[in-house]
Amino acid sequence: MKRYQNMLMMIAVIALVALPLWMVKRPAPGADGKEVQIFAGSDDKAKDLVGTISPDYKPWFTPLMEPPSGEIGSLLFALQAALGAGFIGYWYGCARTRAKLDQANHRAARC
């Protein structure tokens, strides 16, 4: 039952990611003929909103280091995810093996 439940939850997550990709249609290019960006970061949208609410606001500090290109940025994001996923995988492997060995020991003890 538990495994079945986990599977369903994973499918739901995949559906939640895939559905927007399918539902959101790219709007027609604006008057300037430029393609409209979709699926931009909400952080950037908030930045633009600050610009509309207080046009006079000037950021008083700039990032010390910016990824030189989008590729480098995605490299670092992938690295961050890999570190986390790697550790979770390590824990899962350890935990499973420990559970198996425990079971085997119990069985051996009973014989």
Binding site: L16, V17, A40, Q80, G84, G86, F87
Partner: peptide
């Protein structure tokens, strides 16, 4: 310690995943 690592690792993974949303932006 191991569980603390799992908790930290989970935050690492999830906050690196930018996912699309129905509003047409990613977060």
């Amino acid at each position: 310690r191991m569980l603390l690592g799992v908790a930290a690792a989970f935050t690492f993974v999830l906050s690196a995943l930018k996912m699309p949303s129905v509003t047409g932006s990613c977060s």
